[in-house]
Amino acid sequence: MADDILRIRTPIGIDYTWSSGPGSVVYMRGLENGKLIGRRCPDCELVYFPPRNGICPRCGVLLAAEVEVGPRGTITTFCVVNVPFLGQTIKIPYVAATILLDGADIGMQHLIQECEAADVRMGMRVEPVWKDKSEWTPSLENILYYKPTGEPDADFDVYARHL
């Protein structure tokens, strides 16, 4: 009997509404239309993609000008994932990479496909593969994954300060 009452399960459910805020609207509207829109900090002049919360965390000021970035970019660093993960639909091993989009000053995370995991390199040039236009929503998931462009790798010095 005692064993039966040692633990109980009490499921918890609360629904939340999450506001991304006006600072990120251009970014999400951009994704909805197949464009990657970042924003420039008026103080340090660096370009953020995504413009998370519409703010430059380094300067603590609201981001200003909209800047279209990418679509191509450079893999700065990456992880080869071999762990089956809750809800994961991607076949392992797969590569989760930090990609510095052309024209952006901060990397973002995405998948690398159409390439063996073992062939992915730091400095590799990649481009996005989009979902069918009919499926686009205001989400980064409109991009299925990035794939190699075949261009020569970027020099380490070019992206070293983004690591």
Partner: peptide, 20 residues
């Protein structure tokens, strides 16, 4: 966290401070 519905929700508040 339970007010915003996000674990570690305070972390992003540091972004608001210009902590550099």
């Amino acid at each position: 966290d339970y007010m915003t519905g996000q674990p570690f929700s305070f972390v992003s508040a540091v972004d608001a401070l210009g902590a550099w």
